[in-house]
Design a protein around this nucleic acid. Sequence first.
DNA 1: CTTGGGATGGTCT
DNA 2: GACCATCCCAAGG
Length: 188
Amino acid sequence: MSSLPRSFYARDTVTVARGLLGKKLVRKIGGQIISGIITETEAYRHRDDPASHAFRRETERNKAMFGEVGHSYVYFTYGMYFCFNVVARSPKSKAGAVLIRSLQPEKGVDLMKKNRGKTDLKNLANGPAKLSLALDITKNQYGVDLTNNSSLFITEGLQKKGKITKARRIGIKEGMEHLWNFKIIYQT
DNA sequence: CTTGGGATGGTCT
DNA sequence: GACCATCCCAAGG
C-alpha cells in the first residue's frame, strides 16, 4: 500500500488530526515491518494555540513544525522519551503538527514487545512515548518525509467507520478551550 | 480502581 | 533554574 499524498497534510491541522484516525503507521527496520492503526491524535497549531511548541517562535527544536507538511516532528521530553508528530497545516498557517498518541498494534507485535520490554498487548503503543519506543522512533527520525515508502510512512488503513470522540488535550495547561484530542472507537 | 513520586536531561528564560 | 504534549510502579481504598 502506498503512502498518503502530501496534499493530505496541507489542510487545517485539526482536520488532519481527525483524518489520521484509522490510518496506518508503518515502520520498516532491517527488513522487518512494524505497523499499527492510529487511534488517538491531537492537533497543535501556531499563534492561536498557547499549548503548541510553535506558539512563541521558531527554534532549533520546533523548526520541523514550520517546515514542509508530511514530514515528522519528533521531540524529546521528560528526560527520557520521544513523541512523534506529523507536520500538517493549511497553506495559510505558518506552523502546525499532529501528535500521534495511540496505536492499535498490527504487524510486528513480537518486535514491539521486544522494543518495549513489555508483553501486554493493550499497553504496547497506547501512549505517545510508548508507541515511539515500540516503533523505535527517536531523534534519528526527526524531519523525515512520511509520504515516500521508506522506513517510516503512513498509508490508508481501516476502511470501516468508527465513532470519533473529541476532548481536551492531555498534559497541557493552556489552550484548554480547544477540544483537539481525537479518538476513534470501533464497535466489536 | 485512584493517587503520588521518581526517573532523567534537553530546551527555554 | 524551572519546566515539561510521559511512563511505571507501589501503596491505598
